[in-house]
Write a protein that binds this DNA or RNA. Structure first.
Lengths: 197, 197
DNA sequence: ATCTCCATGTAACTCGTTACATGATTTT
DNA sequence: AAAATCATGTAACGAGTTACATGGAGAT
């Protein structure tokens, strides 16, 4: 009994959860881990946000819960998507997209970086490159593993959809690293020529 | 007198605003337009979010306001960054970055797209491509204009920082379009061979 | 004994969007 | 005359984060 009125618009997180339980039934805890890592690539949520949405999906008849043995003071519940949930998810995929480009703190820092010393900016960019290289390594390992399992062969499967988003993640990281390297070269060049004290 | 307690952490939006008024003094209204278009590329805010932050920047002594002639029932105020604001902005550029990768609704839709008909998914991707091509055209026009003005020549200016973020925008759009085309080709191939029904 | 993982929930708060409210100037 | 633009604010709500709360199972 977290909330009762079910007339308010369904949040995007609900569809992220539906997309995950459409693959296999999951507990709230498992969802909270998945919304850090695999899908976490492009959608994140904490467990405090997930549990209320799960209860709402249940009340909407979009998901059903079964109790499974587990630890803890409260029952462990595994959620499965229902026929109505599949319909809702299908409708959402086709729904018109809202074009709000996201927020990117690194770009904002670079936009403001002319107020700082060149060495500070270069440090910022080097840190960013290291973190993106790390992320890229994770993604490429995952891509190789997917390709070895033959996931890339049939574009109609759920695993292929995973693989497709993974490829976009790799493209994003590579593009960002290339841009960071370009920017560092430019800052190095305009600093080492040392026109002004 | 919107809020009084000034001990809570300063939101990222405050630094986005500082980065803008560090270039030239702006009114709240001008900021709200800039946080749609040029910087809007990677940070957005509505005027209802901006005005309270401006008042807070003033109370912090990070920005100063001067009244200028203008229309409307309330005085029009143009904000300039102060020395303390510049220090705060400089410190923020160098501060450790929080790595929370953003949310991307298109990727979430693709992740869920295996539940929908192939034609629906292809429609989604075609729409996305059209919107990204449009955005790319805007960015490339802006880049050409910046290069014609010689902005790309000196990496120490504020205009170069603009230009650098613009280049990242172009890279992002191109990468995304390439990925969309790859995905559409893959879906076309696995559909036109028509193995089933 | 302590730590980590599994497991679910609530409370308090900040961030962000939409809607309400007012009113002058300029353009169509 | 109507619409768009300039200009600033508040209110209500939804989205998202952090912190509080509980407790069993297994590993160190």
């Amino acid at each position: 009994m977290t909330d009762v009125g079910d007339d308010s618009p369904v949040p995007t997180l609900a569809f992220a959860i539906l997309a995950l339980i459409a693959r296999e039934p999951l507990t709230g805890y498992q969802l909270s881990r998945q919304l850090r890592d695999p899908i976490g690539l492009f959608w994140q949520a904490r467990h405090s946000q997930i549990y209320p949405v799960l209860n709402r999906l249940e009340r909407l008849g979009w998901a059903t819960a079964e109790e499974v043995p587990g630890p803890g003071p409260r029952p462990t519940r595994r959620f499965s998507i229902g026929a109505a949930g599949m319909d809702a998810l299908r409708a959402w995929v086709a729904a018109p997209q809202s074009r709000r480009s996201g927020r990117d703190e690194l770009l904002l820092r670079v936009y403001a970086s002319w107020v700082a010393d060149r060495s500070v900016t270069l440090g910022l960019l080097r840190d960013a490159e290291a973190r993106h290289r790390e992320q890229l390594a994770t993604y490429t390992a995952r891509r190789r593993s997917a390709e070895d399992r033959g996931v890339a062969d049939d574009a109609t499967t759920a695993e292929f959809a995973d693989y497709a988003t993974l490829r976009r993640g790799i493209g994003f990281e590579r593009g960002r690293i290339a841009w960071l390297r370009w920017l560092m070269r430019r800052l190095d060049a305009d600093g080492s020529s040392d026109d002004e004290g």
